[in-house]
Nucleic acid binder design. Structure first.
Lengths: 190, 190
DNA sequence: CACGCATTATACCGACCGGTATATAGATTG
DNA sequence: CAATCTATATACCGGTCGGTATAATGCGTG
């Protein structure tokens, strides 16, 4: 593996385990077995390193989400697919999930949080869009699309955080997720 | 206001706005209009300062939660009361809510997250207990109390983060919260 | 070989980090 | 008045922070 990829992997791991602010570039470089100038040669700054991690991972996640939403099912089906796609991706990249969660809930004025904001906002808008395009099955939502999207994301995130932290076998994880989504939708449809 | 309280207030604000790791003790002291040794006189360390914030706020939140759970209603009623109590408290202490959320989702090896862990675990156990004591109305939960508690917390947190960030009027906030809890319970009971 | 380019290391920068030794001021108490 | 205790500031500690100037390495190409 070349130094660039090693640096990305080490940084992702360290950021996910201790937090962006608590990890120094020195330590990242040492863990990757290179020196600081090498890190700065590839990424320009600590922030640039975080951006590179987000960009590379997001490209894959975005493609998976687009795939999951490509079908023509109803809202419930689409949300189940979306949740499944996210669960699959994050199960493969647990460290990235931890990192993303910590950035999602980081204070808004935090530098790392601001770096991640565009990506997280994009994700949020994707979920809102699913609810937006669902007025025929959900009826008039009276502008509650945002609330639905927010709480949906909240449920999924919390469940994934729970299930990825312990070592739940994949099939149990999936059935649990399906149940969580089903429960959530029952509430919405009522 | 005495210097101790000023320091607590300034630290809570700064931690909530930029994150524990991103704020230096120097800046906290300057914002409070005192010098570093004064900070260290009262709190011993940066971590001690965070602990003091958590301890003082938690005493109030804990009392409110105990109050809310003192009644003898069914699960739905108890959860609504619990959610209402939390919403009320966090509406009065928005900065603290932001801080707590950032700590809840901070990586586990982060020092600040470890400091907050006992408090957050206590909160989690309180919610689990509500579900534990509800087998007569929810039937056999087959060990899903934890999943219920987790996703319940996820929904509430996400909704409060949403509603406290914008400036939603209190009555609308409450009715929205009631609806979110109702939606959630519909899913559980089905 | 000689040139240029991509990559990496040595050694360093000023600023800030969390934390402290020491002294001083003011109130309290014997 | 002297002794003590609380609360505060000045000035400093070694270490680490993010970042960089400079040079050397290796390597493909003319």
């Amino acid at each position: 593996m070349d130094n660039r990829q090693t640096l990305l992997a080490c940084a992702e791991d360290l950021f996910a385990r201790r937090g962006y602010d608590a990890v120094g570039v020195q330590e990242i470089a040492e863990t990757a077995g290179v020196t600081k100038p090498t890190l700065y040669y590839y990424f320009g700054s600590k922030k640039g390193l975080l951006e590179a991690i987000l960009k590379e991972r997001w490209a894959v996640l975005d493609a998976r989400m687009a795939d999951a939403l490509a079908g023509t099912g109803d809202v419930a089906c689409r949300l189940r697919q979306l949740a499944g796609a996210c669960a699959g991706f994050f199960a493969e990249h647990r460290q990235f999930h931890l990192l993303l969660m910590s950035l999602l809930y980081s204070p808004r004025e935090n530098e790392a949080a601001q770096t991640a904001r565009p990506y997280l906002d994009g994700f949020y808008r994707s979920v809102v869009a699913v609810f937006e395009n669902a007025h025929e099955s959900l009826g008039n939502m009276r502008g509650r699309q945002e609330q639905f999207a927010l709480t949906f994301i909240g449920v999924i995130n919390q469940y994934l955080t729970f299930v990825l932290h312990r070592d739940i076998p994949p099939e149990q994880e999936r059935s649990g997720l399906d149940e969580v989504v089903r429960q959530y939708l029952y509430g919405i449809f009522s």
